[in-house]
């Protein structure tokens, strides 16, 4: 079974559990089922595959990759994809402020060195500045720009960052969209840009920006 088939199978099981639990507990959050479905929809898969394809050629340049952080990881979709391309001894740490991302993330994918942390992304990185050789943030549009820059500037100088944002201004929680790839790249203020690309997202008609650098 491919990782994708396994992931979808586990999503279905997680949704089944939510429904079954809801029959005996009126407090069960049914919206979670919908949220799980959205977290692995076609746009999410395309966006994370786009990032993975961009980062894979760079992985061999990362000296002694031991720890990778994925900020704003949701239920861990990107971590599942990344796991296909890194050795089993690499730790992948998913970080999200939503406590349920850990519970559900662990239902969707289990690996000894894939972890889920609940907390603020900036606090997590600042507490572990030297730990990570690779820092991925697929949610820059959800974070204040000062926090995005704090991460790029506080990290270990050799750590590679792989950040995504978009120009999807109409979503309520998108507080820090960029108008263009160029604007996103400038805002990151990197020493070296290894990759910068745009993915057109239909039918919502917005652009997703992916930047990799130091």
């Amino acid at each position: 079974m491919s990782y994708k088939e396994n992931l979808y199978k586990n999503c279905i099981k997680a949704i089944e559990k939510i429904y079954t639990d809801s029959k005996y507990n009126s407090e069960i959050d049914l919206f979670r089922s919908f949220d799980i479905i959205n977290s692995v929809n076609a746009n999410q898969i395309a966006s994370k595959e786009h990032l993975t394809e961009a980062i894979v050629p760079v992985l061999s340049n990362i000296k002694k990759l031991k720890h990778a952080a994925i900020l704003g990881s949701w239920y861990g979709l990107l971590g599942v994809m990344l796991r296909e391309h890194v050795s089993d001894d690499v730790y992948i740490d998913n970080v999200d402020t939503d406590p349920e991302t850990k519970t559900i993330g662990q239902q969707l994918f289990r690996h000894d060195r894939t972890n889920f942390f609940v907390g603020d992304a900036v606090d997590h990185i600042l507490d572990r500045l030297k730990n990570y050789q690779l820092i991925i943030n697929t949610s820059c549009e959800h974070m204040e720009q000062e926090d995005v820059k704090l991460i790029t500037q506080a990290k270990d100088k050799n750590a590679v960052i792989c950040f995504q944002s978009n120009n999807y201004f109409s979503v309520d929680s998108h507080i820090n969209c960029s108008n263009s790839l160029d604007e996103f790249v400038k805002g990151l203020d990197l020493i070296e840009v290894m990759h910068a690309s745009v993915l057109e997202v239909k039918p919502e008609n917005y652009e997703r920006y992916t930047v990799i650098g130091i």
Partner: peptide, 10 residues
């Protein structure tokens, strides 16, 4: 503020 992105989705 404990989970604002989730609340704004829900």
């Amino acid at each position: 503020c404990t989970n604002k992105d989730y609340f704004m989705r829900k």
